[in-house]
């Protein structure tokens, strides 16, 4: 929408004796040339809010269209990340020899699931969002609406795909970890922070993909590499202990320290499998570090602000670019 200003022209209305057809609360849209700048945020977000059902309904419809609403559809939805987790389990236990020392194979597997499922969620949010604009061409070129609804909708899609896997995860989790403390409720704010962070990056990549179409080819590799430099397959304390024992170079710690996703995923791991070098370490603490959560939240807000600014200041051009 090009500089759309909606206003109720009630003052003008009163001056006219009888407005011919009764048009209550008349909307006025003015479209003018623009430069790269944010649209007026008030009307923009009012418009987004009034169309919120569109975003949520499109998300569930997308899944329904792929038959993910049926039992077997859900089954595949869960099976896919499980199989991937199995691949990484073999990778880390057979090649890395991780499971041998101090933890059972099952503990190790659940530890892997913890990080992997969370990371797959972020990966899906970013990847779906990245293709939402180039994929929604017909809608963008034929309708005027706040484009942020499209990545928002794919984010809901990713969320709907994530929740069933969380249920399965819960079953595995309870089977290896019998006692649960109040600390477990930290997963809710951490999940929210993670969602904001992923959505912010999703917005950024959604817009960038429009200018560089091969980004959609490049992105899976970027995300795969990112997984390795984030404490997903190996916990942060495991890496720290390996570095202390001179088995790994010090540079790796620096990489982990500078990764903006690291604090979020590490808090997640801490709350669920403890902060020991192995999952469910006997003397591990399950309380997340508040400083880490704070850093994660700041990163998330930054990602959202940058992503939203880049996306929204360019979205009026999307129809021309498609």
């Amino acid at each position: 929408m090009a500089t759309a200003t909606s206003e109720t022209a009630s003052v003008e209305e009163a001056r006219l004796k009888t407005p011919e057809p009764p048009r209550p609360a008349e909307q006025v849209h003015v479209f003018e040339p623009y430069r790269y700048a944010l649209p007026k945020l008030g009307p923009y977000f009012r418009d987004v809010w009034s169309r919120r059902q569109f975003a949520t309904h499109m998300a569930s419809s997308t899944l329904k269209g792929q038959h993910f609403d049926s039992f077997f559809g859900q089954f595949w939805l869960v099976l896919n990340p499980m199989l991937l987790a199995l691949v990484y389990f073999l990778l880390t236990s057979v090649l890395g020899g991780q499971s041998g020392a101090g933890t059972s194979a099952m503990n190790h597997f659940v530890g892997l699931l913890t990080g992997l499922f969370a990371f797959f969620y972020t990966r899906n949010v970013i990847q779906f969002a990245a293709s939402s604009i180039t994929g929604g061409g017909k809608m963008i070129i034929n309708m005027s609406f706040p484009k942020v609804l499209l990545p928002l909708s794919t984010t809901f899609t990713a969320m709907l795909m994530y929740f069933p896997t969380l249920l399965v995860y819960a079953v595995f989790y309870v089977s290896v970890h019998h006692s649960v403390t109040w600390n477990i409720f930290w997963i809710i704010p951490i999940f929210l922070i993670q969602t904001v962070f992923s959505f912010g990056l999703g917005l950024l990549f959604a817009a960038v993909t429009l200018y560089f179409r091969d980004m959609s080819t490049l992105l899976p590799y970027v995300l795969r590499i990112w997984m390795y430099i984030t404490p997903v397959l190996f916990s942060l304390s495991y890496v720290k202990s390996e570095v202390a024992g001179n088995k790994l170079p010090h540079a790796i710690l620096a990489v982990y320290n500078w990764d903006p996703f690291s604090p979020i995923i590490n808090s997640w791991n801490t709350v669920l499998v403890g902060n020991g070098p192995r999952p469910f370490w006997p003397h591990a603490s399950y309380a997340p570090q508040l400083s880490e959560i704070l850093v994660g939240a700041v990163c998330a807000v930054l990602a959202l602000v940058i992503g939203a600014w880049y996306f929204m200041s360019r979205e009026r051009e999307f129809a021309v670019r498609l």
Binding site: Q27, H29, E32, M58, K64, I141, M143, S144, E317, A319
Partner: peptide, 29 residues
């Protein structure tokens, strides 16, 4: 309001519905 003008001004009063292409937003499945 889909395409921003390069120059000039467009003013539209009222709720607009567009029928530019059929089945926008439809899901074939």
């Amino acid at each position: 309001g889909i395409l921003p003008p390069t120059q000039g001004r467009v003013e539209v009063r009222g709720r607009v519905s567009t029928l530019l292409a059929l089945g926008v937003g439809f899901n074939q499945n």
